[in-house]
Simulated scan of single mutants.
Amino acid sequence: MADTQVDADTQADEKQATRDGKRADRLARQIGSFAKEHGGAEAQIAYLGEKGARIVLVGEDGGWGDLVAPSHVVATSAVEKSGVTVHEDFDGEFAAKVKTGPYEWSRMAGIQLGGPKNS
Results as ranks from 00 to 15, higher is better:
35 A>D: 08
60 E>Y: 09
75 A>F: 01
116 P>A: 07
112 Q>F: 11
6 V>Q: 07
82 S>I: 03
58 V>P: 03
14 E>S: 15
12 A>D: 04
115 G>I: 06
60 E>M: 11
119 S>G: 14
98 V>G: 02
109 A>V: 09
2 A>R: 12
51 K>Q: 11
90 F>S: 01
39 G>I: 05
53 A>Q: 07
80 E>I: 12
24 A>F: 02
62 G>M: 03
78 A>F: 00
1 M>K: 06
95 A>V: 03
66 D>A: 12
96 A>I: 00
35 A>P: 04
21 G>V: 05
47 Y>M: 10
17 A>I: 04
87 H>G: 02
17 A>G: 00
69 A>S: 02
87 H>V: 05
98 V>D: 01
116 P>K: 07
70 P>D: 09
2 A>T: 11
34 F>G: 05
69 A>R: 03
118 N>Y: 10
74 V>W: 02
77 S>E: 15
3 D>F: 15
103 Y>K: 08
35 A>M: 07
62 G>A: 03
41 A>L: 05
46 A>D: 15
25 D>P: 09
45 I>R: 02
66 D>H: 12
29 R>M: 09
91 D>I: 07
19 R>I: 07
73 V>P: 00
17 A>F: 08
21 G>M: 01
3 D>E: 13
43 A>G: 06
9 D>A: 12
50 E>W: 12
79 V>W: 09
21 G>W: 04
88 E>S: 15
99 K>N: 07
114 G>V: 01
